[in-house]
Amino acid sequence: MTAPALSVRNMSKAFRAVQALEDVSLDIHRGQVTALLGDNGAGKSTLVKCIAGVYQPDSGTVSIDGETHRISSPDVARTLGVETVHQNLSLIDSLNVVENLFLNREYTRGGSFGSRIGLLHKRRMSRECQATLARLGISIPSLRKPVGLLSGGQRQAIAIGRAVAWGQKIVLLDEPAAALGVEQAQRVLDLIVALRDADVAVLLITHNMDRVTQVCDGAVVLRRGRKAAEVKVDQVTKDDLVAFITGAKTTDSGT
């Protein structure tokens, strides 16, 4: 048995009086999609932000491939191979598609001097942006448009494209299909499946139970900041999942 790709232990996080996360533990594995479920305000986004280095948890640890790390910033998370699509922090509206895709990953030219001063290699980024989006089946009318002028679905697609383009080993997706039309949402599910098949560990936050049964292997349910259930998707029904989310039903299969 190999170590989980990502394992969270006893994580807690409070915002003043609000205990957003309390003693949450979960594992996600390579080649699997794990759903993270819960009602509004259950703490899902907070958990993702703690893993991604956006927030610092009050207590608890994050291990990647069995090794515990302190994720002190989003940069550290990235370096460790964790890529995130946040619920609403993903893109910079006034930058264009290429600039967003390569934000903080810019290619430079001019050798080591160029890389020291950060001389942008714009042409290469344009080219690779086009190639990447094409590879992911994302079609955007113009890569030069500020993403603020694109539709919600197009923006979402770019945000996901950015997360999956880099061959990371762990991808966290916070409601990636929320703003998408039917066809685009299906695209996203295809992308997720492709990631899974490429042996990436995926954590998928969603409110859509159909998606859970379609693509997820396991599911973790949060309720008021605590873990309410941890199940294998093929052993429960959608109704069970909903019951866990609303608190109508509880288990303790997680330990």
């Binding site: 991604a52 956006v54 910033s73 989003p74 940069d75 998370a77 990235r78 995130t84 946040h86 922090l89 993903s90 893109l91 910079i92 509206d93 006034s94 930058l95 600039e99 934000l103 903080n104 810019e106 430079t108 001063i117 950060g118 001389l119 942008l120 714009k122």
Partner: peptide, 25 residues
Amino acid sequence: HHLRWGRHVLATGANRASAKAAGLS
């Protein structure tokens, strides 16, 4: 327009939270 720094300044000014989440200092 041609340095990473300039682009990061614009990103930070446009949306500091997103810029931070993308790992910019």
